[in-house]
Design a protein around this nucleic acid. Structure first.
Lengths: 248, 248
DNA sequence: AGACTACTTGCACAGTGTTCAAGTATGAAC
DNA sequence: GTTCATACTTGAACACTGTGCAAGTAGTCT
């Protein structure tokens, strides 16, 4: 029987938990060590560095997003489902969007996701560089959408970490933003409605934008290929082996 | 004659320079102090904290983006211009996208930008919550587009900071990504073309996506308001006073 | 001249990622 | 069953970070 020892998977899982709980700047090696019940430095033998650990954790969560079967799903609902799934995943793990700006996050998980993304837009009828462009358009839109909530989550977590009166600091910060916005007519007009209107339903904004983008892509599609529907490979199978959806 | 002393503007300007040169994680108070010719702690009297300094710097750069005159420009070219300008600004100051995920960046600069953004989509004919949704769609798309180049810039800067052989580490990292991508059919197919095709013209991808989004918004527009063209205020003046475009 | 305001400075502290020599447990070799 | 190598784990230490604080300095007002 081998000694009860740390594993890379175990560490990555604990790191994801810690990141979910405390945010990107809440992750530090001593806290991670404590959560694992071992010394902070024990982690280094398994993952090399904190940067590498974040890369590993940041790739792992991509496995959570499901890959719609393109044989039984038309490209538009497939695209909608995948984008919505991605958005939900990024909201669940809001540290990932931050990490995305500072680390080069690419591994099997994201590769699996990207590959299927390309498959969708190939199935839609795009060819050549337009496949990449269509996929990138939707992808970056989702990423950008997740960025603002991520900043908000990071901000509140930082306030919580700093000391007791998080509420008061939040109020103060809101008041300052309010004061600035009041100097601009269109922002001022939104100060009353925004809280009830937008903030309660950010997902509406996401869906509105997503459908507008897909409309635009569809238009592009019927413009560039008015008649031919034969060439592109539409019935291909899924790229990767597993399609697990459970949280790691 | 008053003593030759630090000013908040001077500090913010130096911080922006330092951020442009060294990236977000390259900014630290002692380096900033050195650049200003004063002790690191002198900065604290003027800006309070590093977080606040980043918020100030992160807001300042929004003044660089020009606000197209809506009296003489149709909404679509106005939207294109503003989005393209924003994209260029975010590419110039790639730390801003990262900061956007970790700090609540909002001040007069961004407010001025946002307000004019709303003006554009009001001029287009959107009403109510759809104004916000249209503006948010384009805005988040641009943000997301700037995120990937920002990560790349941050990564190369980190390699440069770490030690001498940045080239070798970069090669190694590329090779690893290559190896992973090779296991997925559509990614593998792109390994040869991607470098020459996409990487040399990321702006093409941006413009493709932007125009697709504007197509989608236009479609949305003609669908919800088939005939009336009277109500929305189209000839309004610009919101803020200055329209300076120079780098700070 | 003296006091007051507006800054500036160096020291120190707690927290960070990471290195490294020294330790400990496990399975294999003889 | 002792020896030994392999696979980890540990705690001390280092360099670096943001920041608080007491002490200092330079101008301005009375």
């Amino acid at each position: 029987m081998p000694r009860d020892t740390l594993t890379r998977e175990q560490i990555v899982r604990a790191a994801i938990d810690l990141l979910d709980d405390e945010g990107l700047e809440g992750l530090n090696m001593r806290a991670l060590g404590k959560r694992l019940g071992s010394a902070a430095t024990a982690v280094y033998w398994h993952v090399g560095s904190k940067d590498n650990l974040i890369t590993l954790a940041g790739d792992e969560v991509w496995h959570q997003i499901a890959l719609p079967d393109l044989a039984t799903t038309d490209w538009r609902t497939a695209a909608t489902r995948m984008a919505t799934d991605l958005y939900a995943m990024l909201t669940r793990h809001s540290w990932l969007v931050q990490a995305f700006g500072s680390y080069m996050i690419f591994g099997p998980g994201k590769a699996r996701h990207d590959d299927h993304g390309y498959a969708i837009y190939e199935a839609a009828g795009f060819t050549g560089a337009q496949v990449d462009q269509a996929a990138a358009t939707v992808f970056t839109f989702v990423l950008g959408n997740a960025l603002v909530p991520a900043a908000a989550a990071s901000f509140t977590k930082k306030l919580g970490r700093d000391g007791g009166n998080a509420e008061a600091l939040m109020q103060e910060s809101m008041a300052k933003a309010h004061e600035i916005a009041a100097q601009f007519p269109r922002l001022r007009a939104r100060l009353d409605t925004a809280v009830t209107d937008y903030a309660t339903a950010p997902d509406n904004t996401f869906q509105f934008g997503l459908q507008a983008i897909l409309d635009g892509l569809e238009a592009q599609l019927s413009r560039s290929t008015p008649s031919d529907l034969a060439s592109p490979s539409a019935a291909g199978g899924n790229a990767s082996a597993d399609t697990r959806n459970g949280d790691v």
